[in-house]
């Protein structure tokens, strides 16, 4: 988790020009860091590449739009990192 978070935080800092120290596990990418959906796409692609996974961003967005999930479930960074770890584990299984 911590290593995943460090990688994700570095990607966000570099992609969105946000100071690394402002990026915390409790940060909400949209509400706290002000990242919009198209900017988040660059982050998602960089995460895909860094971890060798495919974030199902389209499915997450649909679930949020349909009220089946909250944005916090996917875009609070500690939750995002948990999902990345799960995708990594599923890929390695």
């Amino acid at each position: 988790m911590s290593s995943t978070f460090d990688t994700v935080a570095s990607i966000i800092a570099e992609t969105c020009d946000i100071p690394r120290e402002n990026i915390k596990p409790e940060s909400h990418a949209i509400d706290d860091l002000g990242i919009d959906s198209l900017d988040f796409l660059d982050i998602a692609f960089a995460i895909d590449k860094a971890f060798g996974i495919k974030l199902p961003l389209e499915q997450w967005t649909q679930e949020v739009n349909e009220g089946k999930a909250t944005t916090g479930q996917y875009f609070v960074l500690k939750n995002l990192c948990e999902r990345i770890d799960a995708l990594k584990a599923a890929k390695g299984a």
Binding site: L41, A44, F45, D48, K49, K54, P56, L57, E58
Partner: peptide, 9 residues
């Protein structure tokens, strides 16, 4: 160069 999340680059 990349495909994912409903987008293609």
């Amino acid at each position: 160069i990349h495909e994912g999340s409903g987008y293609i680059k």
